[in-house]
């Protein structure tokens, strides 16, 4: 069993077997983070460039930790401290990075499709760490991994995703992955933040939170992305919280053993209430911990891909 591509550009195009392979492999990496010596020599001598053109704390540190625990050499490259801010084009920057012959480039960029662009032009293995509002495959994989740990499966589960659907790359990757694995996904948000295209992605849509949470096994709240909003999508934050915020009262509609997730960073009291985020059913910090294991699995599997042809 192997991955069919040597890049991880998105969940789109992956098969259920490939997703299962990554999740199964991640199981083997969980215990490494729990033991005294949290390092294995697997990727010794490999160089990974963390090319983050958009701010990120969680994802970048998670990748960096995954790289270090696999003994790879990590090079951090962020937009604010680079020539990128001096107006260099993406291709020129990438070509310069390539000249340092990295084995991997992990890219976070605000422009959808930039990882695919890079994959066409450089020789390194590309991992998409979030491209605009398009995809964030490793987040979807770690979410699925966390769900599977708690529920033992993905198939047949009802997953409610509530929040700013429009600006979220997390939700796109999650819907693709979860429906691929046989889960039923309901996306919910205010009409201004819930694009119709989700209808075609095999999930249900609703504007009513109560309807979304009814009988859910998993409740995922998404951040209201103020920084991506250049128009008034909803009147006030308070009104949003009242209408779409996930809280203890609303969670009662979900199954008794439903888990609460959030990809972070959270706006406490907006899309999720503080007591819920810290509550017994919250797996938010587990998501962060699992992220390292899942990213180790991705790097491990991709490093084993011998194919050197460029994917188009």
């Amino acid at each position: 069993m192997k991955l069919s591509s040597r890049h991880l550009l998105g969940i789109d195009g992956m098969t259920a077997e490939e997703v299962a392979l990554i999740l199964d492999t991640a199981e083997g990496f969980v215990q490494i983070s729990a033991r005294e010596i949290k390092k294995v020599p697997t990727l010794r001598g490999k160089t990974v460039v963390n090319f983050f053109v958009e701010p990120s704390t969680r994802t970048r540190s998670s990748f960096e930790l995954a790289e270090k625990r696999l003994s790879a050499d990590a090079l951090n490259f962020s937009a604010s401290t680079s020539s990128f801010s001096k107006g260099e084009s993406l291709l020129d920057t990438a070509k310069n990075l390539e000249a340092m012959s990295p084995d991997f480039i992990i890219i976070r960029h605000s422009e959808p499709g930039s990882p695919h662009f890079l994959a066409r032009h450089v020789d390194a293995t590309i991992v998409n760490a979030g491209d605009g509002a398009h995809e964030h495959p490793t987040q979807a994989l770690l979410d699925a991994f966390t769900i599977r740990k708690h529920k033992g499966r993905l198939e047949g589960l009802r997953v409610a995703i509530v929040g700013d659907i429009n600006h979220s790359r997390v939700v796109r990757s999650n819907v693709l992955l979860l429906t691929l694995m046989g889960a039923h996904v309901v996306v919910c948000g205010p009409p201004t933040l819930l694009p119709r295209e989700f209808d075609a992605m095999g999930c249900s849509m609703t504007y009513k939170v109560d309807e979304a949470l009814e009988g859910a096994d998993v409740v995922m709240a998404l951040r209201v992305q103020h920084e991506r909003m250049n128009a008034g999508y909803f009147p006030t934050t308070r009104e949003y919280a009242r209408q779409f915020g996930v809280n203890g009262t609303r969670l009662k509609l979900a199954k008794d053993d439903a888990i609460v997730m959030h990809p972070g960073p959270m706006n406490r009291g907006v899309e999720i209430s503080g007591d819920l985020a810290d509550g017994a059913r919250s797996v938010i910090l587990e998501q962060v911990a699992n992220g390292v294991a899942v990213r180790m699995a991705v790097l491990y599997l991709l490093a084993g891909e011998p194919a050197r042809e460029t994917t188009s």
Binding site: D24, T25, E27, G28, Q31, V40, T42, G304, E305, P306
Partner: peptide, 23 residues
């Protein structure tokens, strides 16, 4: 014990073997 992460031929073999858990 799963020893795959410690193999000395990881950069030489075609595909990385499926990792199992060390328990």
């Amino acid at each position: 014990l799963d020893i795959n992460l410690y193999r000395d031929d990881l950069s030489r073999i075609a595909y990385h073997p499926v990792l199992k858990t060390t328990e």
